[in-house]
Nucleic acid binder design. Structure first.
Lengths: 142, 142
DNA sequence: TATTGTTATACTCTATAACTATA
DNA sequence: TATAGTTATAGAGTATAACAATA
């Protein structure tokens, strides 16, 4: 090791560690926000990803989880009148999930609360959040 | 909305979403690496945090989990001869956990594998990883 | 009484496999 | 036969509460 090196590269282990810690915190705070709206975390994540009509399978793909999990999640959202589940006329195996008006309202409220109440990210100003956003996009590559 | 705005601030929702996705991927890859060394994820995270002698409670604090979880985790590491659990002479309630020589070797191997085999972070060059590291430190604030 | 570590237990989240109804 | 959704179930990970040993 050269003794005069100014800035050693961040060790992967430490970045992984910090990422774990950050996401633990974000998840905890996310859970507080969603809990206040009486939504479980997977319900909330699902709610945030429904825009137009979407099949159960496509929803699962968006959430990158197994399709078998969607049934229970959508059951819960449906029981609260937040989504409808309509069979597709062309192919009656497929069920199209759409937000009800109340679902749209709650989605909006959830977004607003998240913007206000996720304090870990609140420590970043717009520029810094933009920077983080760019890095995440690069890493996640989508 | 002004139509000519150049760069809207990254919405918190999207950053949260990307963070979830990134950490899901990092965790999945982390699990692959640790699984190859026959370590469960919490065992590996614990192994990475033991340097000098440390009590069960302090370890739990480092991992930010409840102390009741440490028993099983350390049991597993101990069964593989990676750690020792020595009662503190001054206060025999406390058990000091230390790495065995084999524990140190495995810790090193684990670090090396993580550096090589976490491809999501491998997409970043040193400078970019440094940037992410700095942001994480700022956000996590420690 | 208070604290360390332990045990028993329950809950959330997620995956796998088998089933049904459609195609 | 293959696919969409469902059901049952199992596992990982973590938290809470009660307990024993020690302070």
């Amino acid at each position: 090791m050269s003794p005069g090196s100014q800035q050693r590269p961040a060790p992967v282990v430490e970045v992984v560690d910090l990422l774990f810690e950050l996401t633990d915190r974000v998840k905890a705070q996310f859970a507080v926000v969603t809990g206040a709206l009486e939504l479980q975390v997977p319900q909330a994540r699902t709610l945030l990803r429904i825009n137009g009509p979407v099949s159960m399978r496509d929803l699962a793909a968006r959430l990158r989880c197994d399709a078998s999990n969607m049934t229970g999640i959508i059951d819960g959202l449906h029981a609260r009148g937040l989504v409808e589940r309509n069979p597709l006329p062309n192919d009656r195996r497929v069920k199209q999930v759409v937000l009800t008006e109340e679902g749209k309202r709650l989605q909006t409220r959830l977004r607003q609360r998240l913007a206000v109440d996720v304090p870990v990210l609140g420590k970043l100003d717009d520029t810094q959040r933009q920077e983080l956003h760019a890095i995440l996009l690069r890493v996640v590559e989508r």
